[in-house]
């Protein structure tokens, strides 16, 4: 029977197939697409942050030795308020020049720490080392340690936290 059907005429069998495909697609799309965006939606929210963080009195930082300053920022992650911790190495080279490095390794975000006897920031994950200016000495990191902007007001050091 189907062999006799012309191109313009749809027989019952063909009609059923079309309807099944059509209804199936509608159901798939109506559940599937919302399902996907349901899953990925937390990833779509880009967060912006722009804050000056007080880092204590400038005088408390010794000259010439990178000193770790920790601070936390609380933010909403989904339904939960959680505090995120940041580590900044403040290096006071002389009375005027201040640099602040993030302690996050630029390779895979492990935390580096300053080793005074080796005069280097060492990353424990993949044996990377950065010198006192944050430049890569050896290991896999693709670029120097990230630097924060700083400013000094009334003898207090401020660190510029910018994200997103």
């Amino acid at each position: 029977m189907s062999k006799k059907t012309s191109a313009t005429h749809i027989d019952r069998r063909g009609f059923v197939k079309i309807v099944i495909t059509f209804l199936g697609t509608i159901m798939g799309v109506v559940i599937g697409l919302p399902g996907i965006s349901y899953f990925i939606s937390p990833a779509l929210k880009a967060e912006k942050k722009d804050d000056w963080i007080p880092a204590g009195e400038l005088e408390s930082y010794p000259l010439g030795t990178p000193t770790l300053f920790n601070f936390t920022q609380t933010k909403m992650n989904g339904w939960e308020r959680s505090s995120q911790s940041y580590g900044v190495y403040v290096l006071r080279e002389d009375e005027k020049k201040i640099t602040a490095f993030s302690n996050v390794c630029t390779h895979l975000s492990c935390r580096v720490s300053w080793k005074e006897d080796e005069k280097a920031y060492l990353c424990p994950c993949h044996d990377a080392a950065f010198d006192i200016q944050g430049e890569v000495i050896h290991g896999p990191p693709p670029h120097p340690l990230d630097e924060y902007q700083t400013k000094i007001e009334d003898g207090t050091l401020y660190i510029h936290l910018q994200e997103g």
Binding site: T106, H107, L108, H126, D127, V136, G139, P140, P141, P142, H143
Partner: peptide, 9 residues
């Protein structure tokens, strides 16, 4: 990953 330079991470 220790053997892969950072730019080629």
């Amino acid at each position: 990953l220790k053997f892969i330079p950072g730019q080629l991470e």
